[in-house]
Design a protein around this nucleic acid. Structure first.
Lengths: 154, 154
DNA sequence: ATTGAATTGAAAATATACTAACAAACTGGT
DNA sequence: ACCAGTTTGTTAGTATATTTTCAATTCAAT
């Protein structure tokens, strides 16, 4: 049982720190790839994430709800949603439960964009995952989820 | 042996895609934590990374070298380094091997900032890593490194 | 030596994302 | 019904990061 040393890294603390640096790098690479993937359809990684969050839930969401699902601030999501509404990918819908917090829906155009992107994302994701064992990917996913949960609680 | 399906996710492709989303979330949380950690010393996550890259190598680096190590563009690193030079955390040093590409050194002030931050980062990292088995952290690290390598090659 | 390719610095435009602050709307307890 | 606390919309300011473009420098091959 490793102690929580205040003056140096425990072995786990060192591994965690190395993991951080790799998360930063991977994040940058994934955003760049996502931008390339979505650009032909007039979207970006960030806007794709908004469509994905709504589509995954299969029902309209408020701006703060989207933010919480993606781990982003509501202010940032609001900016993205406003731009996407201007471009016709999403639209606002009155919310009977809350006068201010309108619901965000995907338009037909947004659905078409999302579908087209998925057609490119499928083979890309399958290619990326190819050299790695599925069980390893799932375990890495579990580790990251645990860390996210811990950090969200703090 | 899973095929590389072009029309849907393979099980590995699906796991990879889930992993992506978690990387995005974790990246955001880590940057926020890093900002809090470094703020008392007049730094940010991004600037801390610059100091870390130079300190880790134990020798002055050029701006593009720092960028390559961190997975950032040289233009972005240049902006950070210029600001940090103004603030006295780093300084430029003539490079005999290249008239334009000056070397970036950590100043005494930068070194003090880095040391002070480490003193806070140690217990924080140890605390974050506590609930996770060291072997799991290392395996997750390996998976992420593999993915980064694949994506860097593309 | 010379030339073509790659690297670097510099500047600008754009996108992403956070914090802070304030008012409007909602929620729950009394 | 009322009040305090929370959530949401909005705006503003700042930091991070990429792409693009052009000129200066370096490198490598001939």
């Amino acid at each position: 049982m490793p102690k929580t040393d205040k003056f140096s890294h425990t072995p786990s603390g060192a591994a965690f720190t190395e993991l951080l640096l790799e998360v930063f790098k991977l994040n940058g690479l994934l955003l760049t790839e996502g931008d390339k993937l979505t650009k032909p359809f007039g979207l970006t990684s960030a806007r794709w994430k908004v469509l994905g969050a709504i589509a995954e839930t299969n029902q309209p969401l408020t701006v703060p709800q989207i933010g919480r699902r993606m781990g982003l601030t509501r202010q940032n999501v609001q900016r993205l949603v406003d731009a996407m509404a201007d471009e016709g990918s999403v639209e606002y819908q009155e919310n009977q439960d809350h006068k201010r917090a309108k619901l965000i829906c995907i338009t037909k155009k947004g659905q078409q964009q999302l579908t087209a992107i998925m057609q490119k994302q499928f083979p890309w994701a399958n290619r990326c995952a190819k050299g790695v064992k599925q069980s390893d990917l799932k375990q890495a996913l579990n580790v990251l989820r645990t860390l996210v949960t811990h950090l969200e609680e703090n």
